[in-house]
Amino acid sequence: MPKNSTVALDKAGARARLKEAGVYLAMAELAGSGNSAESKVAGSNAILAGIAAADAICGLVLGERSAGDDHTQAINLLKRAIHPSTKAATSLKRLLTQKTPVQYGADAISASDAADLIKWARDIVQEAEAKDR
């Protein structure tokens, strides 16, 4: 797959991604107040929730989602799909910045860091839910 690419995502697919985002977010919130391992799992699920919700927004509005390795492309595609005053693009950027260290790194994350990731994911999920109305 090329570095910068998108794939089609129809409304049904976008709604499926939105449901997945909700489940990831619920799992993140469930694990978010525990020990460092639970915080890391919560953070990882929050990141997945944000990505799924961003996909849902892009699918609902643009009929496509990012499918490349370039996180900047995903953020720029999301910016095309939302009103500039929303927090979703900034929140996605924050989540994607933490993706590698949280999901693949050996270092623990704090409950506070997990709470931030959950908040940013919630911003994107709420925006996706608003687009689905």
Rank of each mutant, 00 (worst) to 15 (best):
L62M: 05
D116A: 13
A114W: 05
D116H: 14
T72E: 15
A114Q: 04
V41G: 04
S112A: 14
G50C: 03
Y104N: 14
Q126H: 12
Q73P: 01
A81I: 10
S112G: 13
S110K: 11
L95E: 03
A53P: 11
T100M: 02
A56C: 11
A108C: 10
I118Q: 10
S112R: 14
I57R: 06
A89V: 04
G50D: 09
K119A: 14
L92P: 04
A115K: 13
S110W: 03
V61G: 04
D113I: 05
T86G: 01
T90K: 02
S36L: 00
E38I: 08
I82E: 07
A37P: 00
I124H: 02
A106W: 11
K93V: 05
A121M: 01
R94L: 11
E38V: 06
A74V: 01
G68H: 06
D69P: 05
T100S: 13
L78D: 08
W120H: 14
L62N: 11
A52P: 06
I51S: 12
S85M: 00
I75C: 08
I82H: 06
Q98T: 04
C58M: 12
A88M: 00
G43K: 09
S36D: 15
S36P: 13
I51A: 08
A121P: 04
D70R: 14
T97F: 03
I75W: 03
T90N: 05
L117T: 04
A121H: 04
G59W: 06
D113Q: 15
H71G: 08
K79T: 12
L60P: 09
C58V: 01
P101D: 07
S66M: 07
W120N: 07
I51C: 12
A74H: 14
S66P: 00
R65T: 13
